[in-house]
């Protein structure tokens, strides 16, 4: 008997309590064994990630056409089965989820700024909002929606903040580029950064004719971004709750 790849992936999605990334699924295929019937798992041992992604997309289309009560969505870097919104009244009752858990406008504004401009220092957030953000930052940290991602090189070495995995999950975002206005506001930031880098580069070149370390800056930025979008420590308190 040979099982269908699509059905196995469906079973994984059905049981998962977190979004599954294609690489998670690939790791499962690579490690899963069946002692009584080794031949069952063997054919899937070396499934490629591209094949998994294609299957996930196929499943998504299938659910969209057949319209069962659930759908497959891409969220926080993975894939997840979720119910369709029209069943909300009954599910809210089932899960005793009657209170609206909405964040306040100051929280949403601060989160948007952090999400689109991360890594960012407290003073820079306050400069954009025009008011202090200390209280808001504290609650967002407590709720694990943001996290400290590093320290700035600026005087006083202020903490830099970024958003967490839980932030993406809470808002149903695939990644940071899925944020409202991401294209416009992130591009601007990138342009600013490149401009800064160029000035720095120019200054460095002026000082040192060799112009060494040209590639160092963009690399640092990419690194900071990577820690920001997938902080592993963001996951632990979530499951603890």
């Amino acid at each position: 008997m040979t099982l269908e790849l699509k059905k196995i992936i469906e079973a994984l999605l059905f049981s998962a309590e977190r979004p599954l990334a294609p690489k998670d699924i690939r790791a499962i295929f690579a490690e899963a064994t069946d002692e009584e019937n080794p031949g069952m798992t063997e054919p899937f041992r070396n499934v490629r990630e591209a094949q998994i992604v294609a299957t996930l997309e196929e499943l998504k289309i299938e659910y969209d056409t057949q319209q069962p009560s659930f759908q497959l969505v891409e969220i926080a870097g993975g894939w997840r089965l979720v119910t369709r919104s029209e069943y909300a009244p009954w599910l809210k009752k089932l899960l005793d989820e009657t209170r609206p858990h909405r964040l306040s406008p100051p929280s949403l504004e601060t989160l948007s700024i952090i999400a689109l401009r991360q890594p960012i220092a407290r003073a820079d957030i306050a400069a954009i909002r025009g008011v202090e953000v200390d209280g808001v930052i504290k609650t967002l940290l407590e709720r694990d929606l943001i996290t400290i991602v590093g320290k700035s090189e600026a005087p006083g070495r202020p903490m830099l903040y970024g958003t967490t995995q839980k932030f993406l999950e809470h808002f149903g975002l695939r990644d940071i580029d899925d944020m409202p206005k991401a294209a416009e506001l992130r591009l601007q930031a990138a342009a600013l950064k490149t401009a800064e880098e160029k000035t720095e580069e120019a200054q460095a070149k002026a000082k040192d004719a060799m112009g060494s370390g040209t590639d160092a800056a963009p690399e640092a930025v990419a690194e900071a971004k990577a820690t920001t979008t997938t902080p592993d420590e963001g996951q632990a308190p979530t499951t603890a709750q």
Partner: peptide, 13 residues
């Protein structure tokens, strides 16, 4: 808030 997964509506904020 109207979409539910196995973990509940979201991660409980």
């Amino acid at each position: 808030a109207n979409i539910f997964s196995r973990q509940g509506p979201d991660t409980g904020i």
